[in-house]
Design a protein around this nucleic acid. Structure first.
Length: 686
DNA sequence: TCAATCCGTATC
DNA sequence: ATACGGATTGAC
């Protein structure tokens, strides 16, 4: 002993430490978001932790000389590792927070998005709150199937969809039926979701509902409470609270204690249904039988933290792996969902035309382009007379009238100065942009200069920048309708609902108060369509339909856009599914997502170049566009940023993600600095 | 000849 | 990240 005293830095393991008799090796997912360390590490389980160190528990381990958090993935007999194993330092809590289902889902999500398991686990598992863990009743709740299984729910509002009853029966039978749902206008969608959830509960399975925001969540929550309360309590229920409280809602804005309490009640099986916003997509619902995604086109479903997973993708992956049913939809539809239908993964769940005619308002389009283009700041001239007449008639009916105004501040894009077709790069199809710094427009994707551009539609040779005029609409309308109450909803102050009385309700998209409107005016639709985004059309349609869905069946919707445009036709016909299919078909020959897999690499020029240089060779099917400078203004002193796009066939998506992961691993192993952001399926490709 | 420092590499 | 090992440098 005395001989080793001099080696003060050496950590002397107490000689009393003995390995566990049973499976003495723990495989640990260490909380270390470095790409080259994204794999399990083995540790020796000391005897004293033999019982506690079960798969799924949080632990502390000594990793690279410092104590780090981690999760036990597995307990095994032996390790493949050549060197000596460290001892597991501490089991933080006996709670098995990482279930096998979520562990393997998180791994799949990391692989899909070129991210690390550690990053995904941080999104999936909320921070621990020790006091809450102790306060909540321990152990498993009784399973619903202990009693007589309740009768499958009656289709109710689902009978309005030809495929509705069959879908519901499939869910109730525990089959992995998957639907791409186009919801009928009106306010019955929360109840439709709740009924599908009840069907899953009848099969003794859990359900998970993800919605974009807390407003939608409140409505789903209410519907779930009503529909689940109607279920007979399970006969075998051991405590009254368990039998009644069958669902919970999860949002990020709850405090840490309440957030963890509700999440634990899902984990422990006290509730079998969870509804929530984005982060709930990883909720450890037991026996998952159904996942639901509402308003699948809302960009809130895209997680802004690495590795930037999208709720649609995660829930589809999850349903697939768990053998659960899936209900994905909204009023509108994205080409991504159309792709899921095309590939055969999901089946259409859409209403028939006769039903739509009966419940959807009449939609009319008024372009008034000439008037608008002459002077965007003109006052009442901005409101076509038809709009004023529509509003007046609606108010006379004794109901509120909704006015949807796009938000300000959209980026400048370019279009043909004559026919207004969006200007695209001749080389790769990306959008053209004009910056103050240069006279010749260039492509935002590949950087190719577009000197001598000519419009492919009309042959005109001049571009114009597109920007949106001020939205002084509320003021103008107030003047046009003296004596009528004008209320606004949007930005920081969102009205959840308004009473059924004559009033003008001015709202930005997504902030429309729930009401039974006599009419809706969808202003500046042409400007929404001119946004420099690949998604401008589908996004415009989504916003229009969300507003139009609040209008009474005998009401009128007036959209401020050219009626001959397919996207406007889709609104008039209330047929977002066909439109999404068409958008998808249009993107095929252009090699645009989602018909191809795209990834973006953003960061300082050197870092992006080095990452691209680290990419392993591929079979030549991968394409690199750029890098080009990022358009966004750089604060003084900040380094310039560039972006490269990678494009590959869909079938090579996993290989693309793997290559990007490998490139990041090579860079992080070499300690190369400079933040590089790697994003698969980037939301905006401007 | 020894110690202080640098660089590269592994992290169970 | 950080910590360690091996190589390198520099002072006695």
């Amino acid at each position: 002993m005395a001989g080793t005293r001099a080696r003060a830095t050496r950590k002397a393991d107490p000689p009393t430490l003995l390995p566990a008799a049973d499976r003495p090796v723990a495989r640990i997912a260490v909380d270390m978001p470095l790409a080259h360390l994204d794999r399990p590490f083995d540790y020796q389980v000391p005897e004293r932790l033999a019982e506690q160190a079960r798969p799924g528990v949080r632990v502390r381990v000594r990793f690279a000389g410092q104590l780090t958090d981690g999760f036990v993935l597995d307990r095994v007999d032996t390790s493949e590792h050549q060197g000596r194993l460290s001892w597991l330092d501490r089991v933080v809590s006996p709670e098995r927070v990482l279930t096998p289902e979520v562990a393997s889902l998180a791994r799949a999500v990391a692989d899909r998005y070129a991210g690390t398991l550690a990053d995904v686990l941080r999104l999936a598992i909320p921070p621990r709150h020790a006091a809450t863990e102790g306060a909540l009743p321990r152990g498993d709740a009784s399973r619903p199937e202990e009693g007589r299984p309740p009768d499958a729910p009656l289709p109710g509002p689902w009978a309005r969809y030809p495929a509705g009853p069959a879908f519901l029966a499939g869910v109730a039978a525990g089959r992995p039926v998957r639907a791409a749902w186009t919801a009928l206008p009106g306010d019955s969608w929360p109840r439709e979701i709740a009924i599908a959830v009840v069907a899953a509960a009848c099969a003794g399975r859990g359900a998970l509902v993800v919605v974009p925001d807390t407003r939608d969540l409140a409505r789903v929550d209410e519907a779930l409470a009503a529909e689940l309360a109607a279920l007979p309590p399970a006969d075998g229920a051991t405590d009254g609270a368990t039998a009644v409280a069958r669902h919970t809602s999860l949002t990020a804005d709850l405090g840490p204690a309440e957030r963890y309490r509700r999440w634990l009640s899902v984990l422990r099986g006290h509730v079998i249904v969870a509804a929530g916003t984005r982060a709930a997509m990883f909720a450890p619902v037991r026996d998952l039988g159904l996942v639901v995604l509402w308003d699948e086109g809302d960009d809130l479903h895209a997680e802004p933290r690495a590795p930037y997973p999208h709720a649609r993708e995660v829930l589809a992956l999850r349903a697939h792996r768990a053998g659960a049913a899936a209900l994905i939809g909204g009023f509108a539809r994205t080409p991504e969902l159309a792709q899921l239908v095309n590939s055969g993964w999901a089946r259409d769940l859409v209403p028939e035309r006769a039903t739509i005619r009966a419940v959807a308002p009449t939609v009319r389009a008024a372009a008034d382009e000439y008037e608008l283009s002459r002077d965007a700041a003109a006052t009442t001239a901005r409101l076509p007379s038809l709009a004023l007449r529509t509003a007046r008639a609606g108010l006379a009916d004794g109901h509120p009238v909704l006015v949807q105004v796009p938000r300000r501040g959209y980026l400048a894009a370019t279009a043909c100065a004559r026919c207004r077709a969006k200007a695209r790069c001749a080389t790769c199809g990306g959008p053209l942009r004009v910056t103050a710094a240069q006279e010749v427009p260039d492509c935002a994707w590949c950087g190719a200069l577009a000197g001598g551009w000519a419009c492919p539609d009309c042959g005109f040779g001049q571009l114009r920048a597109i920007a949106i005029g001020a939205a002084r609409t509320a003021e103008e309308l107030g003047r046009a309708f003296p004596g009528i109450k004008v209320r606004t909803s949007g930005g920081p102050s969102v009205l959840p609902a308004v009473p059924d009385e004559p009033a003008l309700i001015i709202a930005t998209p997504g902030a429309e108060p729930v009401a039974s409107y006599a009419a809706a005016l969808l202003l500046d639709g042409w400007a929404l369509l001119a946004r420099p985004s690949l998604r401008s059309e589908e996004e415009a349609l989504r916003r229009w339909m969300a507003a139009a869905a609040l209008v009474r069946p005998d009401g009128t919707v007036l959209v401020h856009a050219d009626a001959s445009l397919p996207v406007v036709q889709a609104l008039i016909r209330w047929d977002p599914a066909t439109f999404a299919e068409r958008v998808l078909a249009d993107r095929q020959p252009l090699a645009f997502p989602p018909t191809v897999r795209m990834a973006s690499v953003t960061g300082e020029p050197d870092a992006v170049a080095s990452l691209l240089g680290c990419l392993p060779a591929d079979g030549g099917r991968r394409e690199v566009l750029g890098p080009v400078p990022v358009e966004a203004a750089v604060p003084p002193g900040e380094p310039e940023r560039v972006r490269a796009l990678l494009r590959s066939p869909r079938a090579d998506g996993l290989a693309l993600a793997k290559a990007l992961h490998a490139a990041q691993a090579a860079r992080s192993a070499r300690k190369e600095g400079g933040g590089v952001r790697v994003q698969l399926d980037p939301a905006e490709l401007i």
